[in-house]
Design a protein around this nucleic acid. Structure first.
Lengths: 200, 200
DNA sequence: TTATCTTTGCTAACGGTGTTAGAAATTATA
DNA sequence: TATAATTTCTAACACCGTTAGCAAAGATAA
């Protein structure tokens, strides 16, 4: 009785096909150009089929948002272990964050522009939570080493994240017409200032 | 022959009516809920009339974006003069920036979310340029006072702006479920770090 | 093998969107 | 008053996300 299994496999394949096609469209025409109808045409199925796999268009975008956080976590975790000192780790992770946003513009836009979940739900998404936890872990060590061990980790986490995101957001929105190299320098500079406030 | 003048006045009035109605709708239903058709219905004109006043929907949103920058400039300029020391000015201006974003969410979203002009054009908009110029003016003084007078003003401007915008952007996107008070503290904290790097 | 039943996918529609061509109505000029 | 110019409208185009309801295909049981 492998029939149900086969069906299940085939359904899963269509699901993947939808995601692959959607992602191709996002890369080719931008996040906002994605449409259910175009996906349907590309995969040679009718529109309602997509709704048997995903509740809505936002659900599809949400899938990519989660994957984006997952990829970002992967890369930040990788560089974290390349350093021993928490402060160096924070610096390396900041560079990894910037590099991710630069090399995965579509993912980054999905994570912060479209498909943003409502306030309360955001932290219930495991991938988003993992991102925060990773940074807080390192921050905790860095704060413990500094001269003010009672500083709130939560507090510093948002400061750290704000500095990183701000520069990328402004640049992506076209408000900053400078080179990649300078963008990177700006991030480094701002993070230097941040790290200073951790220990002095 | 005041006929053309009268016509001109009347046309101007309709233009204002469109903007007023659009703004009302944005405040009531959010930026994304604004539609040309709804404006037309509200002002009791047909849809194409709107296109005799504005080239497109984006042009209407662009109008608000410019006004947003103008308002922001007003408020930052006001607090600037309440302080003498450039560093204090930078701090006060940062608070004014945050307050503006908090009290004018719709404007802020328009300025950085929707209706973002293409990269090159952004700085050609007088209001956007004025915003940058004001901050750079103060930054220049602050840098001159510091121990590294050769620091690039342009560079520090984007760092300053990034820090401010990042916190607001994350919070508006629902990634930060903390209170207003804490948000303000985070901005203050990050700006402290920034100001430190200006002089040491 | 045939008849029933379940699942699957389809067409077609609903109610929206921005934008524009072309006709109609209004207004000013000769 | 007739003609010219302007203004405004209706109606359409080409999209969008979403869903109701029907047709076709598949599996199951007699």
């Amino acid at each position: 009785m492998g029939i149900v299994e086969r069906k299940h496999r085939m359904k899963e394949e269509v699901r993947c096909l939808i995601l692959e096609t959607a992602w191709k469209q996002i890369l080719e025409e931008g996040v906002n150009a994605l449409s259910i109808r175009k996906i349907a045409e590309a995969i040679e199925y009718s529109v309602p089929v997509i709704y048997t796999h995903f509740e809505s268009k936002d659900a599809i975008l949400g899938e990519f948002m989660r994957k984006g956080y997952w990829l970002l976590n992967q890369q930040m975790e990788a560089v974290k272990d390349s350093e021993a000192d928490p402060k160096k780790q924070l610096e390396a992770m900041a560079l990894a964050y910037w590099t991710f946003s630069h090399e995965n513009k579509a993912y980054y836009q999905l994570m912060f522009g479209v498909a943003v979940p409502s306030c309360e739900e955001a932290l219930r998404i495991p991938e988003v939570k993992a991102f925060g936890d990773l940074i807080k872990l390192v921050l905790k060590e860095a704060i413990a080493q500094g001269k003010r061990p009672d500083t709130s980790v939560e507090f510093k986490f948002f400061t750290y994240w704000s500095i990183l995101h701000g520069q990328i957001s402004i640049r992506m929105n076209g408000g900053a017409p400078y080179s990649c190299e300078m963008a990177l320098e700006i991030v480094k500079d701002a993070i230097q200032g941040f790290i200073y406030t951790l220990s002095a």
